[in-house]
Nucleic acid binder design. Structure first.
Length: 340
DNA sequence: GACATTTGACCAAC
DNA sequence: GTTGGTCAAATGTC
């Protein structure tokens, strides 16, 4: 979705309204994997709409910074990239040379982790003429998936990351073929009934860490409820079935699971979208909703990294970068991430 | 013990 | 020789 640099806030919000209508239409019927991808795409665009709208409000301008300038950091970039970015809301269309190198997409985003996939960091490199290290990630959803991404924080201005995606994800096919093999093995092992085989497939799915693969009607309903609530500005308590799983809340704060809250930024939206990625509604392992102390403005949700929730060297500041709790990643870890 | 992350070393391209 | 990208052993976390 492209945002016209001359667009007004009302136009951007109107486009968000349209997106929401399309998402609701999509969610009104059972979702197959394609539908989930579409819902994910709509949701991401909605996040972008919110981001742009908030940027407009914060800057008291009709144009979001990254849209207005193409590069708010001041780092010199090729004119082509600037043009592409200003035309495409932060997404840079790859050149022919880039495609030959396997680069399929470039994005400038304050939230480099928000793409619905699970990534494993495999490298970090200090880049010449850059204040921040470049981080290298591989897709972690399947060992043989060749998708990678590079994350480079821009030197100046508000936290903004250049995310370069390399190679298409093949984890969908790889996982599907794995699941087929597992199901075939189960059929060979014993002459169970169809329903029992389905139960086994579900168990296999669960054991593989994405236990909501096809999604029951109840789960789908909960999904629709969550997304609709987020879009409308409030998050309902999780369904009594315990879905979605909230390890933080259930393990350390049982009451938190049922605590109603107001979505304060686009992070909660994205966390919801993380649940509908094509892994089958799984929670992103890095980022999950974590209830925090009530702010003056009322209960809020911010996103924290559960793996680092207890660490002193990782901190989240909801005031950073215009109030986006996630935009500290990985900027605030410079130095802190490295061993002393 | 399994898995994820970190980081120095290595390699290829320029 | 310099630089960016990747590997893999060491280390950390659960």
């Amino acid at each position: 979705m492209a945002f016209d640099p001359d667009a007004k806030l009302s136009d951007v919000l109107a486009s968000g309204y349209d997106l929401n209508n399309q998402l609701q239409a999509l969610l009104s019927r059972p979702l197959d994997s394609r539908g989930q991808e579409l819902a994910m795409a709509f949701s991401q665009e909605l996040s972008r709409v919110f981001l742009v709208s908030l940027s407009m409000l914060n800057s008291n301008s009709s144009v979001a910074p990254e849209v207005r300038t193409g590069n708010s950091s001041g780092v010199s970039t090729p004119a082509k990239e600037k043009r592409a970015r200003s035309d495409n809301g932060g997404v840079v269309t790859p050149t022919k040379k880039s495609r030959e190198e396997g680069i399929i997409r470039k994005e400038f985003t304050p939230s480099p982790h928000k793409d619905g996939y699970q990534w494993r960091k495999y490298g970090q490199k200090k880049i010449q003429n850059c204040n921040f290290s470049r981080y290298y990630f591989k897709c972690n959803r399947h060992r043989r998936c060749e998708a990678k991404k590079k994350v480079q924080q821009q030197d100046a201005g508000p936290p903004m990351f250049e995310v370069t995606y390399v190679n298409e994800h093949t984890c969908h096919e790889l996982r599907a073929s794995d699941d087929d093999a597992a199901a075939a093995a189960a059929r060979m092992a014993s002459p169970w009934t169809t329903s029992r085989r389905h139960a086994l497939a579900g168990a296999v799915d669960t054991a593989r860490g994405h236990g909501h693969g096809a999604g029951s009607a109840e789960e789908n309903e909960a999904m629709v409820s969550c997304l609709a609530a987020v879009v409308s500005g409030s998050v309902p308590p999780p369904p009594s079935s315990g879905w979605p799983p909230a390890p933080e809340a259930s393990a350390s704060d049982p009451d938190a699971a049922g605590r109603s809250a107001t979505v304060a930024d686009d992070e909660a939206m994205m966390t919801m979208t993380m649940m509908v990625d094509d892994t089958g509604f799984s929670w992103d392992p890095w980022w999950s909703l974590c209830p925090v102390e009530e702010a003056a403005s009322g209960p809020q949700l911010v996103v924290m990294n559960p793996a680092n929730h207890h660490r002193d060297d990782m901190h989240m500041d909801k005031d950073d970068a215009g109030g986006f709790a996630d935009t500290v990643w990985p900027e605030h870890t410079c130095g802190a991430w490295r061993r002393a």
